[in-house]
Design a binder for these strands. Sequence first.
DNA 1: AATAAAGATGTATTCAAAATACATGTTTAA
DNA 2: TTAAACATGTATTTTGAATACATCTTTATT
Lengths: 145, 145
Amino acid sequence: MNLKKYTDYGLRVLLFAGMKENDELVNIKEISEVFNISQHHLGKIVHELNKLELIETIRGRNGGIRLAKPAEEINVGIVVRQLENDFAMLECFDKGQSHCVISPGCMLKHVVNRALHAFFKVLDEYTLKDLIHNEEELKEWMGIQ
Amino acid sequence: MNLKKYTDYGLRVLLFAGMKENDELVNIKEISEVFNISQHHLGKIVHELNKLELIETIRGRNGGIRLAKPAEEINVGIVVRQLENDFAMLECFDKGQSHCVISPGCMLKHVVNRALHAFFKVLDEYTLKDLIHNEEELKEWMGIQ
DNA sequence: AATAAAGATGTATTCAAAATACATGTTTAA
DNA sequence: TTAAACATGTATTTTGAATACATCTTTATT
């Protein structure tokens, strides 16, 4: 059980952008170098974060990205749900092809589903702001300023 | 985010075995037919369930498998932890190769870790017995008796 | 206007892990 | 002795994520 790197990277982009002052822009190249991630791959993640209205992207020279709203309004649980789009924990979660013969009467899926909700309940308690609380320390690690 | 089919299948084996009366044996062929799973693959899962002391296996003609202990003593959370052995939700969970530069000061891993604990806290509340509570219905679906 | 920097986007390739298949061995009741 | 059943190592297939490649569009600067 694990989150996709895609989700991991997406969260890092938000963290990095959330660390900048005011409306300062950061560009993909910079982020890809800091985290040592493929620039093109990151571009796709950024593109999706933009579609999800979590960041703004500004094209062209001197362009870049920035958070689309204050860090305290970006909920971690919601972001993870959006980036990580497949939560079919068991085969029978996927209603389309529920092949397991015991599926109709089986309690397992309900139990796992409850567990999944508990998982998100915790994430829902945090915003991006909470994650960058120890901002000074993070900035140092990121080599900002 | 999802559990491996391996884990899914392992749980089904336990459910199926737990459904039988007393010390009645079931064999892998039977289970693989009911769930339409590769018999050999299932063999390996059964082998591991046996190593984990969740089932007993009896070799030879008229052999088969059965639960190693009463269904009410088999905890769902523990089984899932044992079958699903990789819980590196984020890259930085893997201490060996924590490449992310912000890892030392980043709060994200702690938050996700809390969420993971909440996930298992729910699973820990259930035993195999709880899952086969509506035994009659399940038996019908499984074609038992 | 030309240019360069930056994001947008579609396609293809690589890679890893899971799932499955194949082959053969061992055990044991009939 | 034989057949049914689990044991176990190796190999192949499949799938999806990650990455690479290529090209396009946008926009500030000169």
